[in-house]
Write a protein that binds this DNA or RNA. Sequence first.
DNA 1: TTAATCTTGACTGAATGAGTCAGGATTATG
DNA 2: CATAATCCTGACTCATTCAGTCAAGATTAA
Lengths: 147, 147
Amino acid sequence: MKLSSRGHYGMMALTYLAQKVGDGPIPIKVIAAAEEIPEQYLEQIFVELRRAGLVTSVRGARGGYKLSRPPEQIQVGEVVKVLEGEIAPVECLHADEDNPSLCCSKTEHCATKIVWVKLRDTIVDYLDDITLHDIVHKSSKLYTESR
Amino acid sequence: MKLSSRGHYGMMALTYLAQKVGDGPIPIKVIAAAEEIPEQYLEQIFVELRRAGLVTSVRGARGGYKLSRPPEQIQVGEVVKVLEGEIAPVECLHADEDNPSLCCSKTEHCATKIVWVKLRDTIVDYLDDITLHDIVHKSSKLYTESR
DNA sequence: TTAATCTTGACTGAATGAGTCAGGATTATG
DNA sequence: CATAATCCTGACTCATTCAGTCAAGATTAA
């Protein structure tokens, strides 16, 4: 149950951009330095973010990256999906046409499966409810005590 | 955001045992066959489960494993913690004495950290709320529609 | 023209995951 | 007592993934 560094770094970088909305494109180098992320590694991550339409690049001198949409329209769930792939605590959750749920030939017919399905839903619901805007503005969604 | 096969197999095996409560100790071989889990691999997993006090072993012929507690007292969260380690979506969440949160020297002072903290809480709360009994008896907790 | 950027793809080294192998210790049963 | 059925232990392997680097190219502002 771990995020990879891509997901973590990606969120850090996008949060940084969300704080700089309006400043024009920000070079990778700047983000990498500010957040202490290896620059060339962060480049790879931005390739994925760009392909997914989350950020827009401006090439050439004075270029850089900016968010493609306002921070309140970028959900953490979307970022995580792009950088980590579909959230699926166990393999058999993303059964598609040619892969019709391998793990379910067992005696108990995957009695545990429902647990993982609900776990995924819980995670996705949580992540989809939070946007970059919430993070930057310390939304009460994130900062009120719940336990 | 994936469970390892240990967690998955472990839950399958314990759920199997929960279904057989009262039958006396069940050999690994039987569980492995029923759930299609490599036998020697499952042995490793049971070592951890035993050390954690979740199952009790009976050695020798006619031996096997049984749950150490009734199914309603075994939470999924506990099993996952035993087999996967503390749930911590990102590294810096389990900062202890000698490891005081490495990732937080950044500009934005880990603005994203709160997201992962809350994510962890969300996951833990969910997993701690479900017991083996809920799984075996198809508790409404797991089977009512929520989305 | 040049320097600052993004863009691409190949590469590497270490860690982790998933499982196997080999043998030993314990105990019910005949 | 002998033996077979178990659990118990630790080392080992093999493939994959992760995290990051390297090298070279394309684009564009100044």
